[in-house]
Design a protein around this nucleic acid. Structure first.
Lengths: 147, 147
DNA sequence: CTCCTTGCAAAAACTTTGCATTCCC
DNA sequence: GGGAATGCAAAGTTTTTGCAAGGAG
């Protein structure tokens, strides 16, 4: 998905709900999608402020919530007490391997696991909308350092 | 693991660290393990207070942190902004299905998924210590209500 | 023009911490 | 007795919200 297509998706989401496109929302979107990784609101706000001093953190919270509802971003919680967001489109769905020593995050995807998840959910009568899977442990380089 | 064994594990953990066993800690442990599910500190505190008015919420926070460090409980974060704890021993490892409408939490386990996780991790050179998997969606009864 | 959005600051929700007092060992 | 634990309230964090002013359609 190109940046342009992404904007169109968001514009449409906005319009469908009777909401409006604003300078701040556009700026936050551009900044967010221009960066990579798993950003906390605070981190994103810092980047946005570098481009426009006047944007308030409340607007970043509000915009990221919208972006999350639109499906263009996913909220993540890695247990450090902060909500992090990551871009959701133009990318395959993926899960995370997290090194508890150095904090490295590796993304992966596995279709077989996804299929099994669907089967498990069906057994319980659940209709799954989204999921998270995180594997915590030591990455290759931290294992060597400890050995 | 019987309640008695559990107490011994905790007593030992406490003693090894030069900490002390207290009335409050014992009460919180008993209450926590006597209940089932995924309790927030607030919920647990309410139950403990029913037995002893004088226990402060700070002590519950401090005790649950200890319990988590001892490995007898796990901290969970299901995205509602609260840390929840669940008993960790005497139970199989399991994952969660969470209804985003009514908050119902169903536990499940699936060996095939666990095996696939191990394979994925190995490919990346990771040594996995623990993992979380959460499937979010609508439970059977909430699907009906919405239909 | 109308209603949505923004910034600001206040408030809310959750968790941690400082300190005097109380309690184990 | 001495260090650890507790209760309380104050302070920290992260996120949300009320409101007057500004902006998009």
């Amino acid at each position: 998905m190109t940046p342009t297509e992404r904007s169109l998706v968001f514009e449409r989401f906005i319009a469908d709900r009777g909401l409006k496109s604003t300078r701040q929302r556009s700026l936050i979107l551009e900044t967010f999608f221009g960066l990579d990784g798993h950003l906390s609101v605070e981190e994103l706000w810092a980047k946005v402020r570098a481009l426009d001093e006047r944007v308030s953190v409340a607007t970043v919270y509000r915009t990221m919530k919208l972006l999350s509802e639109s499906g263009l971003a996913h909220a993540r919680n890695f247990g450090d007490g902060q909500t992090r967001y990551e871009a959701a489109v133009g990318r395959e769905h993926h899960d995370h391997l997290i090194c508890t020593n150095c904090g490295t995050i590796i993304e992966f995807e596995n279709d077989q696991i996804e299929k099994l998840q669907a089967i498990v959910a069906r057994k319980q009568g659940f209709k799954v909308v989204s999921h998270k899977m995180e594997l915590y442990g030591l990455c290759a380089s931290c294992q060597q350092k400890r050995a």
